[in-house]
Design a protein around this nucleic acid. Sequence first.
DNA 1: TTATTCTCAATACAGCTGACTTGGAAAAGC
DNA 2: GCTTTTCCAAGTCAGCTGTATTGAGAATAA
Lengths: 199, 199
Amino acid sequence: MPKRVDHEERRRAIAEALWRIACARGLDGASLRDVAAEAGISLGQLQHYFSSKDEMLVFALKHLGGLAEDRIRARLLGLTGPPSPRDVLRETVMEMLPLDSASRTGNLVQIAYFVRALHDERLRGHAKEGIPALRAFFADQVRAGIARGEVDASRDADAEAMLLIALTDGLTTYLLLEACGPDEAVSLLDGHLDRLFTA
Amino acid sequence: MPKRVDHEERRRAIAEALWRIACARGLDGASLRDVAAEAGISLGQLQHYFSSKDEMLVFALKHLGGLAEDRIRARLLGLTGPPSPRDVLRETVMEMLPLDSASRTGNLVQIAYFVRALHDERLRGHAKEGIPALRAFFADQVRAGIARGEVDASRDADAEAMLLIALTDGLTTYLLLEACGPDEAVSLLDGHLDRLFTA
DNA sequence: TTATTCTCAATACAGCTGACTTGGAAAAGC
DNA sequence: GCTTTTCCAAGTCAGCTGTATTGAGAATAA
């Protein structure tokens, strides 16, 4: 056998090269040759690790989502003391927003996938799969807030969860377009949470 | 001179063919030949009306925005009696959301443009140009609501306007992904407006 | 009629795309 | 040393892309 190579690591490196290109030129502007060049390998080598372009795209999408989840988890673990539901929601949303350039890259790539998913049934499944879990997570936090008396009991936890997700997503759009600054986005979200957590 | 042709009308017909393709396969999947075939004309004829693909894309985008504005204006004029600020906001937002299949098409195309604009400076200008006006329009309605005592005077009209725009945009995303139904989106927005217009 | 100008079809072209094939280098197990 | 398996570089291929060119038909104005 030849030298043993960590396939997963190679695939991750290729996926990250794909992100860089997708971020700069869009997903459709990322040819196999471009990605290979960005990753510093030959086209043949790239095709050795991904037997088709579609396989590469799906892998890169899943890897992206995994890293985002990891970042959120790490951020929540980094909270000092027992976090309140409001803190959990705030930190999660802040991590999702494109407030720094690294997060901006991730969001740009994710949106590129989203748009492709609108016309591609296979990708749509992958794109949608994380939404119910996120929504349930948010709803749980709202319910915890209600239980602690920090949220008015008349609020519908599921509705508030969807509202917060949609708001985050919309702000993401305008942040990426630079039609809205990071400070403004943060203050808008804080204001929204202020009215949700009234106690 | 040969038979006189209404250039603008031809260009509109071509733009609409482009939308149909962009809606089904994405903007990047719309080649000049595809658009010409969809419009029922030859490639040469299409090139006679648009000297470059870029020109066609920009024209189609502006035409799309113009029609959307017209629909909103018509809907507001259709309101019986003097509309309250809340009605104006509600109707405008409802017209923007992809609640029926026609509006869904428009939103799909608009998002395709949005994503391309993220990587294309020329398009970004066109994509952003309508946002400040919309935001100012929404803010004016909120201010009118405050003046009429229907909105709490402590609310920041500009912030509420941005919040509503972002929320609409986020809901649009999840409607298009079918991660959220039309009824739910409407009820979420009504709930949001209920809390804004408290009197 | 004749000339002019508009409309548009056909074709060509260079460049890029994703997929595939071939062949060889390298390293582990025997 | 020899085999076997893995890894990967180079090249080929058909197909599609946007653009440019050429020329023909058609209708108006002289």
